[in-house]
């Protein structure tokens, strides 16, 4: 009997080993361990055995039974693992194929430049002020110390709608409107971005419509050195920490003194190159101390208050920064142009 049991064991182990799937394994289990299985049969026939033999054979039968169960279990785990392995293999993809593209657009480069400058000055305590693009002659010129016959009006030939209404030639009228709202009380600290218009024939460097961004700070005891300080902060943040700035005297009717700001060339670091026309300096903006006439006309006492103002062209900044050669690109809106500023 003992031999028979051991033979059964060997037989079952072989079948388990050969089982290739869950079902085959189940069949083995039913066949050898089921109620009609050979081991049960052996146990049933134990009555014929001697009293001494009975516990020995019984123990052996149980032992064999447990061994078969264990091997089935192990085989089951192994089969499961093989199954998952096969599934994973069949599901394997070429991860180097391109992803499903999700199209994204991006902001216009001028918007990016303006938002960058806005954020920079918001950090310095300036608010963003906006105003109409079609303006009264008064706000665009007269309140800025440019009376009707002023020769400087030559410098900005304008698009008039009527004798008194025109497309603004700069965003300075927003400064005037904001100062008037303050009714003579400072501080006024604003940045004015927006579209402006001048009678220019469109070519590579001129556009009848362009952007401007201006700043104004009016308070008690504002000095030209403060303008230099603020513009230094601006230049370093906008064009790099190692930029130097230079102020040159200039003329604008609405500021006195008037200065132009140059930055040391970001391309060559000041040694001279084609970007800076071999001077080492790049002209970036016009600025100055607000003319007392402008302060007075806007309702501020010019003996108590002083201020500075500055203005620059986002197109020019973008052209310098990215080496764009034609201002018309900004208004043609070729996506092959626009998409290059995704990370701007």
């Amino acid at each position: 009997m003992k031999e028979k049991l051991l033979a059964l064991k060997e037989e079952a182990f072989a079948l388990i080993e050969n089982a290739s799937d869950k079902k085959g394994l189940q069949d083995v289990k039913v066949k050898y361990l089921g109620k009609k299985g050979p081991i049960t049969e052996v146990l049933r026939g134990m009555g014929k055995l001697s009293k001494d033999e009975r516990p020995v054979i019984g123990a052996l039968a149980n032992e064999i039974r447990q061994a078969i169960e264990l091997v089935i279990e192990q085989k089951q785990t192994k089969l499961q693992e093989e199954l998952i392995q096969a599934q994973l293999e069949s599901e394997t993809i070429d991860v180097t194929l391109p992803g499903k593209s999700i199209k994204t657009g991006n902001a216009h480069p001028l918007t990016s430049i303006i938002e960058e400058i806005e954020d920079l000055f918001i950090g310095l305590g300036f608010s963003i002020a906006e105003g109409p693009e079609v303006e009264q002659d008064y706000y665009n010129f007269e309140a800025l110390n440019l009376p009707k016959d002023h020769p400087a009006r030559d410098m900005q030939d304008s698009f008039y709608i009527t004798n008194e209404i025109l497309l603004r030639t700069h965003t300075s009228p927003v400064q005037v409107r904001t100062m008037k709202k303050h009714q003579g009380k400072g501080p006024v600290k604003i940045i004015c971005p927006g579209k402006v218009y001048r009678r220019d024939t469109d070519d590579a460097t001129h556009s009848h419509q362009f952007m401007q961004i201006e700043g104004l700070y009016v308070d008690k005891k504002v000095r030209l050195s403060d303008l230099k300080g603020i513009l230094t902060v601006f230049a370093k943040k906008m064009f790099g920490e190692d930029r130097d700035i230079r102020l040159r005297p200039s003329f604008f009717p609405f500021t006195e003194p008037s200065v132009e700001m140059d930055i040391s060339c970001f391309k060559c670091g000041g040694h001279g190159c084609s970007v800076c026309k071999h001077t080492g300096w790049i002209e970036i903006l016009g600025s100055g101390m607000v003319h007392p006439n402008v302060l007075e006309m806007a309702g501020f006492d010019s003996t108590v208050y002083s201020g500075f103002a500055f203005g620059m062209g986002p197109e020019r900044i973008a052209m310098l920064k990215y080496g764009i050669d034609d201002i018309r690109h900004f208004y043609t809106d070729d996506v092959r142009f626009l998409e290059q500023f995704k990370r701007a």
Binding site: I102, K103, T104, G105, N106, A107, H108, L110, T111, E133, F159, L167, K195, Y197, H208, Q209, F330, Y331, D333, V335, L338, E339
Partner: peptide, 10 residues
């Protein structure tokens, strides 16, 4: 997926 454009007012 839209690109921002700036066109002329006039």
């Amino acid at each position: 997926g839209l690109y921002e454009t700036v066109t002329y007012s006039l």
